[in-house]
Nucleic acid binder design. Structure first.
Lengths: 110, 110
DNA sequence: TATTTACGTAACCAAATAGTTATATTTATA
DNA sequence: TATAAATATAACTATTTGGTTACGTAAATA
């Protein structure tokens, strides 16, 4: 069972949970209220997020407050970030080729 | 069947494929050679990457060259990036406490 | 103390994932 | 033209995922 940040953020509900907890710390039930799925389903998502360190639990009375540990997103951020030079600089040869062909065609048509 | 960038980069083999193709365009067989798994398995990974736009195929003779479209990583990058303010600014109370204790200890030692 | 609240866990299920081997197809070459 | 090379696809399998309902437990409250 892989349990890493990439797998954690692959699920759209878990991404939504992260978005909620980035705004404010919420109890489990407060998180549940924001979604259509059952409490156990949310509970499992929270467990996965917890297992890869993205959220921590803080027990207060009978509530468990879920608080985000945003630093755990950094490895995923850095992995993608290494390509930003590529997507900013790259002259995409195929697109370039298409553009060239298109331009030549247009010139011929005129 | 979800087919988005987050799901695409959730698999470690697909991340490795992206890393390879970021360096150079490779034929399918050249990609296969880099891994221990079978060609059909790689073929499926390439298909998934293609279906969410991260790679394009460029057929040359009987080879299919796989070329990366790094711009498709941008949405995932931006999603994570929105939290960098959070992980940079946030005063993590426990870490802060540790740093404080450490600093006090160092001052005493000198 | 009995009940309610706020959860977690177990057992189960359907669908998706990630792999396999076997086979088919297209293109290049002998 | 027969063969080899480069690839995809089909059929299958085991495991994982993401959900459900039913039940259990600790803490607060009536």
């Amino acid at each position: 069972m892989r349990r890493d940040v990439f797998q954690a953020i692959a699920d759209p509900i878990r991404r939504d949970i992260i978005e909620l907890l980035a705004i404010e710390t919420l109890s489990v039930n407060k998180v549940v209220e924001k979604f259509e799925i059952s409490r156990p389903a949310i509970s499992k998502h929270l467990k996965i997020l917890n297992e890869c360190g993205i959220i921590d639990f803080n027990k207060v009375g009978r509530e468990r407050l879920c608080l985000i540990q945003p630093k755990k997103l950094i490895p995923a951020f850095l992995w993608i970030k290494q390509y930003n030079k590529l997507w900013e600089d790259r002259i995409d040869s195929f697109e370039n080729y298409l553009n060239k062909v298109q331009t030549e065609k247009n010139n011929k048509d005129e």
